[in-house]
């Protein structure tokens, strides 16, 4: 039933960059409420795929539908939240408070030629509370640790109450303990708030008990299925995607 109305539907997407295919014939459907983990080696096109979904790259060949609308005419970008791979390499000297950064997540929702209301400020406070960063709201963003900054960027993505959250390696530079907390938080968003998640990560092991679906990308889509099917994959199959010497450590609880 839920598959009849996927939030994201990608059909035969191929993307060339300077004479080389970066993505080749990708077809994938992401149902509402899914938590999809995308894995693949460096340069396999993961970020490129996500950029397509965010409208940052124009579709060259194939088709993408978001919420049932062709991406070329899609306008409701405030339904999608985004935490980028580069979030933790931003200009740390930027003079903005945590509050200001999170409020900027509402820019599109508030709309051009309009100003934020008291309602919007309340939303910022609530979302900062939910990621445990309320007490830092008046600090400059550059004064926080990498893990704290990442929470702020999550808050910025969540403040517009998106139905779909897209994350590109959000845990780079976050220490191990906080990484676990972070994935717990994502799982919560998915289970409690029913936000559909698309997560690019290299921590296959850590997420294999959190995500509902896995996609293995290396230019082509090598595998796409439920987490159970993924966990049943043999290690050889994975190393055929990743190259040699990949150790997949699955979490056992």
């Amino acid at each position: 039933m839920e598959n009849s109305n996927p939030i994201i539907k990608i059909d035969h997407l191929t993307y060339r960059y300077e004479k080389e295919n970066v993505l080749e014939d990708i077809s994938i459907e992401i149902p509402k409420g899914a938590f999809l983990g995308i894995v693949g080696p460096n340069g396999s096109g993961k970020s490129t795929l996500l950029k397509h979904l965010l409208g940052l790259i124009k579709v060259q060949q194939g088709e993408i539908r978001l919420f049932g609308t062709d991406i070329r005419s899609f306008k409701e970008w405030d339904r999608i939240g985004f935490v980028s791979q580069k979030a933790n390499s931003f200009n740390t000297g930027f003079p903005a408070t945590v509050f200001e950064v999170v409020l900027s997540g509402l820019t599109r929702k508030i709309g051009l030629f309009r100003f934020g209301s008291r309602e919007d400020r309340k939303k910022v406070h609530a979302v900062l509370e939910s990621v445990g960063m309320r007490e830092f709201e008046n600090r400059n963003i550059g004064e926080l640790s990498g893990g704290q900054q990442q929470r702020v960027f999550i808050a910025r993505a969540l403040v517009s109450e998106p139905e779909l959250l897209i994350l590109d390696e959000p845990t780079v530079g976050v220490d191990a303990q906080n990484v676990n907390q972070f994935y717990d938080m994502l799982e919560n968003l998915n289970k409690e708030l029913h936000i559909t998640l698309v997560l690019v990560t290299h921590d296959i092991g850590v997420i294999s008990d959190k995500v509902t679906h896995v996609a293995c990308l290396n230019k082509n889509l090598h595998f796409h299925g439920s987490t159970m099917e993924f966990n049943a994959l043999k290690e050889q199959d994975l190393s055929s995607i990743y190259g040699h010497g990949v150790q997949v450590i699955t979490h056992q609880h």
Partner: peptide, 23 residues
């Protein structure tokens, strides 16, 4: 004044500005 929040977002994070549909 009118474009303050767009200018802020564009300055802080251009990619995010474009991804959220800001012109």
């Amino acid at each position: 004044i009118v474009l303050y929040k767009e200018l802020f977002l564009l300055s802080f994070d251009e990619e995010h500005a474009r991804a959220s549909g800001v012109p």
